[in-house]
Design a protein around this nucleic acid. Structure first.
Length: 471
RNA sequence: GGCACCAUAGCCAAGAGGUAAGGCAGAGGUCUGCAAAACCUUUAUCUCCAGUUCGAUUCUGGAUGGUGCCUCCA
């Protein structure tokens, strides 16, 4: 598989450091609110990466943290008169509520920053001892001047960065350089604190991730993922901290996803143009949101509009209907193909399964090209629909096709688990309608169909009899 | 000022140095009591200019337009 590495700006063949075992870390949410569609993108993207790596036979240790201590957490908790722990508990639960429904699998570890305090302190101690960090009046800072290759991920050099920083921020008296960043912030009023060798206080944001990576995955990991806005300074700073402290290469492949835009502008909490997944889920199935997201390449921006979501819904229905239809015709399908037409259909379908599975894998191997992978699924759907129109198609062909569709959808996390349960009440109406139709009482039949749809179900007439599905 | 990214049909979106996947929407048709679903047919010289090449939409340079990062941010 090839992965685009932000650091080298090239697609590289992915080989885990430890054969057969990929170590992946993804920056998780700050748990002070429901997450919005933009936040959901990395969760979905890297969950899909993880599923695919496992599909290809790798063991994956997958870590996604919860940031439960930072300015936003403190502000929100103080505003609500609760502790940051209570705030975190609440929104971690809300995270799982949404994430589970988006088919985002639970990570191997979901560490909370506040639970990694010993490792955070240990890392800072190491950095101070090695001379990469210094203590100032209000905290401990990383000394950028000690890190000559700082900027290697975002491809900035120190001079450029100094210039940019000086244009925007006046030098804070406690720091030696504008670019130095806080590892430890000494206690202020109304802020939670932890004891440390530099007095009571709390960790800086960047060190939390370095600490959790080290604690759960070690000094060198294979893949680190996150949004493009984290490249600088967050990931750059993680590199500075981890490599300076550990003396090892930190991350072998850096992956960064593009943004979700609204009216071609980045969706973000600060600009207020965001849609939470929870709100959208009131109008669209969670998996449609996931499908929508995966229908473009993860590094490209996605412009979000209601129209596009509706279009995604229609495409999604096509896939779901195909699987429903396969399941439906399976019951009455013959065990063996009898006539030549059915035999030909079965042969063609068999070829299509091979061809499109191959296409799916090639697409995913190419830097997780889910858009192409989904079009392979659509082509398989068309092949299945065509073959399914042939009445004599055998059970085995149908089963193999349905199984492959589900297999591929599952790799993308798009396998719907909800079963189509038809209440007895509805079935009764369906039977009554069939009887009315047989008697050529079409008025009565149509009236019953209306009644059925009022109960939330659709009935369609097929050569195999009436097919009922949820509206 | 610096560093990146993007520009493909009405909309969304892949893509390869040799005349463009897929989805949505539209039109026509087949099937159906009607419908639904499905199937078939149909809709693009890939922003512009220059260069490299036998040949570029795909490579290089430039222009124009859009976005992001350089400050919390997925």
């Amino acid at each position: 598989m090839k992965i685009y590495n932000t650091q080298t700006r090239e697609k590289e063949t992915f080989t885990p450091l430890e054969p057969g075992h990929a170590k992946v870390y993804v920056c998780g949410p700050t748990v002070y609110n429901y997450f919005h569609l933009g936040n959901a993108r990395p969760f979905i993207t890297y969950d899909t990466l993880r599923r695919y790596l496992e599909y290809r036979g790798l063991k994956v240790t997958y870590v996604q943290n919860f940031t439960d201590i930072d300015d936003k957490m403190i502000k929100k908790a103080n505003a609500e008169g609760i502790t940051i722990g209570q705030l975190a508990d609440r929104f971690i639960a809300e995270y799982y509520h949404d994430a589970d429904r988006l088919n985002i699998r639970r990570a191997s570890f979901h560490p909370r920053a506040t639970e990694s305090m010993p490792m955070i302190i240990q890392l800072i101690e190491t950095l101070v001892a090695k001379g990469f960090a210094y203590e100032a009046e209000d905290g401990v800072y990383f000394d950028i001047q000690k890190m000559p290759d700082y900027g290697k991920l975002s491809h900035h050099n120190l001079d450029e960065l100094e210039f940019g920083a000086s244009e925007r921020v006046s030098l804070d008296g406690n720091k030696r350089s504008n670019l130095d960043f806080a590892l430890w912030k000494k206690k202020k009023e109304d802020e939670p604190w932890w004891p440390s060798p530099w007095g009571d206080g709390r960790p800086g944001w960047h060190i939390e991730c370095s600490a959790m990576v080290k604690q759960f995955l070690g000094d060198t990991i294979d893949i680190h993922g996150g949004g493009q806005d984290l490249i600088f300074p967050h990931h750059e700073n993680e590199i500075a901290q981890s490599e300076s402290a550990n003396g090892q290469k930190f991350v072998r492949y850096w992956m960064h996803n593009g943004f979700i835009n609204v009216d071609h502008e980045k969706m973000s909490k600060s600009t207020g143009n965001f849609f939470t997944v929870r709100d959208l889920a009131a109008h669209y199935d969670y998996l449609i949101l996931r499908f929508f997201m995966l229908s473009g390449h993860y590094r490209m921006p996605i412009n979000f509009t209601a129209e596009l979501l509706s279009a995604a819904q229609n495409g999604w229905n096509r896939i779901q209907t195909c699987i429903e239809n396969l399941n439906f015709i399976l019951e009455q399908a013959p065990a063996e193909t009898a006539d030549p037409a059915a035999e030909a259909a079965a042969a063609e379908l068999g070829a299509a399964r091979g061809q499109y599975k191959q296409a799916f894998i090639e697409a995913m191997d190419d830097d997780l090209n889910t858009a192409d992978a989904i079009s392979a699924i659509f082509e398989l759907v068309r092949a299945a629909n065509t073959a399914a129109a042939c009445a004599g198609l055998d059970k085995n062909s149908i089963q193999l096709t349905a199984a492959l569709l589900k297999e591929l959808l599952d790799v993308l996390g798009l396998l719907s688990t909800s079963e189509n349960v038809i209440p007895a009440e509805v079935m009764k109406l369906v039977e009554a309608r069939s009887a009315a139709k047989k008697a050529r009482d079409f008025q009565q039949a149509d009236a019953l169909r209306t009644e059925i749809s009022n109960l939330g179900f659709a009935v369609a007439d097929t050569p195999q009899g009436p097919k009922v599905s949820k509206l």
